[in-house]
Amino acid sequence: MSTLLRRPKTLAVLVVAGVVFIVSLAGGALGNEFGGGFLASPIAHIQLPAESITSGSLFADFQITNTMVTTWLAILFLVVISVLATRRLKDVPTGLQNVVEIVIEGFLNLAESVAGPGRARKFFPLIMTIFLFIVTANWMGILPGFGTIGRIEPAEEVVHHLEESGDEVDLADVRLQLFDGDGSFAVVAFGSVDDEITALEVEEHGVKEGQQAGLLVPFLRSANTDVNMTLAIALVAMTMIHFWGFSTLGFFGHMGKFVNFKQGPIGLFVGLLEAISEVARVISFTFRLFGNMFAGEVLLVAMAFLLPLIGIIPFLGLELFVGVIQAFIFSMLTLVFATMATVSHGAEEH
């Protein structure tokens, strides 16, 4: 330890790290309680439904939400990578082709070890797509700019939205943020942690000249923090699983697992449980992914609030890990369920 400290480089790094830590601690929300808080900004508004990036509906009920934008960006990214990687396929792979081949071959081998060589080819496109999309979307979600750049939703619009959702709105509970400037683009300044007002105050006193009250609606939000997205993937996965079940075992072969009269009341009951577990799988698929990714977003927001500058660094690593693990879990469970669905009950017992 002492020999390490004697080396000037190490010492310098330690001193800088310590200073940055102290500055960030004092400048953050904790320091704000003791007169600091020069770096702190109000904690971002956290809401479960994805925000609309347009102020009104495009047509009927349809709004383009920020998670849709991210979904499309992820799709675009994957398609571009695919085109680049497969433009000139060579027998001796180089560069991007190598990476793509490693991933695809790894997954194919994994699928073959679980489902056997024949079925692996059938299941492979779905589980690979699930993995690639989820991991891309998750990792995109921790890029800078996600959740921090957006348009300002004015106070009236916020209140209007709340009233639309049907609940009684107490204006004193609606917390808004103050932004400098009056365009639809504005920045949340450092040290603006106390620039929070409620909708009631806005209504009663208005805001100062050159400021506006409202909420930041980010243009980009990690796609899997939207239940619609995770539910969509889960529905596709379960639909395909049952499609494979029907096509492999025949209509009665597959239905026989859920409606079973042959083995008396016990068989009927077991079949009922099976049917319930199929529905439960959709829900667990949906909320496992959604919960993990949404919690990750909230964690990053909270850390950025408590320890600006450096607080989120360790959690970025954690989010990378969680992102790939969740993608892997989703695709592997799909693979396992598909394998189970294409095995008849009779074969399972013997």
Binding site: D61, F62, Q63, T67, M68, T71, W72, L231, A232, V236
Partner: peptide, 10 residues
């Protein structure tokens, strides 16, 4: 609408 959009996208 959101669900359908995401389904179609996927």
């Amino acid at each position: 609408p959101g669900l359908i959009t995401q389904l179609v996208s996927f």
